[in-house]
């Protein structure tokens, strides 16, 4: 009897937990979406979160995307100058790629580390100091109260910061092309190659990332248990899971876009 219990229980326990986790994630996502639609939260909290997510990540996104722009332009100019030597197309293609791929995805990768970790750390320390229980004892649903403002703020700010990130990358890229390969600014800054489907793909990606990051990291934060070590674990898990969510969503949306729009 005892041996059977020892072998069978951990297994059902693990399966039970995986199932529990998936159901909890679904519940959090549903509650967040519903709450965002109803949105009865005081506006002050939303403004505070917009500031937290947006303004405080702006410099970070500008610097990282700027440097990425430099690297990408440098690499493509270097490769092209070895093959054809014609650098007039680089700017147009670069801006197109930036809009439908690198701009939103890299911005989201950066936000997954900054905002995802921030949400998990904040919510996680509220869990271990019993503040989340206190919310529930006051008749407040923690998902709605804590995650909805963060969800809305991340949703708005991922798109906004992606625009800033693209601008920063384009400017730094144009500067690199001008300085190292003598491509004139007027040739580099060519937006004629950008089609409406590129912009649409970029916007869809930014919206998807903006939804995934707060839900995934809020889920990790709410499942925190056990003191300061627990908060650290939850933050780690939030960074990994939300970065991974960005990578998977990037792949899926890119594949869908390729299959629907490029086939024609």
């Amino acid at each position: 009897m005892t041996t059977q219990r020892a072998t069978s229980e951990p297994k059902t326990y693990l399966g039970h937990h995986a199932f529990d986790g998936a159901r909890e994630l679904g519940r959090i996502a549903a509650l967040t979406f519903l709450g965002a639609l109803r949105s009865r939260r005081p506006k002050g909290e939303l403004v505070r979160q917009l500031y937290q997510v947006g303004n405080r990540s702006l410099l970070f996104v500008l610097v990282t995307l700027g440097f990425t722009g430099m690297v990408l332009v440098f690499q493509s100019c270097l490769q092209l100058s070895r093959v054809t030597g014609d650098l007039s197309q680089v700017g147009g293609e670069f801006i197109k790629y930036l809009i439908h791929e690198f701009g939103p995805s890299l911005t989201a990768m950066m936000l997954a580390t900054r905002v995802g970790a921030g949400i998990a750390a904040e919510v996680g320390s509220m869990v271990v100091t019993e503040q989340v229980d206190a919310l529930r004892m006051c008749g407040v649903e923690p998902v709605e109260y804590l995650l909805v403002p963060r969800f809305l703020a991340t949703q708005v700010m991922t798109l906004t910061l992606a625009v800033f990130g693209v601008l920063s990358a384009v400017l730094m890229g144009a500067w690199t092309a001008h300085q190292t390969f003598h491509v004139p600014y007027s040739v580099f800054l060519d937006i004629s190659k950008v089609r409406s489907t590129d912009v649409l793909t970029g916007v869809i990606k930014a919206l998807a990332y903006g939804a995934a990051i707060p839900i995934v990291s809020g889920f990790c934060g709410l499942r925190t248990h056990g003191g300061s070590e627990g908060v650290g674990w939850a933050t780690t898990r939030a960074v990994v899971s939300s970065s991974f969510a960005v990578i998977v969503l990037d792949f899926l949306i890119s594949a869908l876009a390729l299959l629907t729009w490029q086939a024609h």
Binding site: F67, A117, G232
Partner: peptide, 23 residues
Amino acid sequence: AVGVGHAVNDAVVAAALLIMVSD
């Protein structure tokens, strides 16, 4: 606990910045 959360957050942000710039 709050301090640990902040430290993790700062560490990943600084690492991401350094990765992008040194790249």
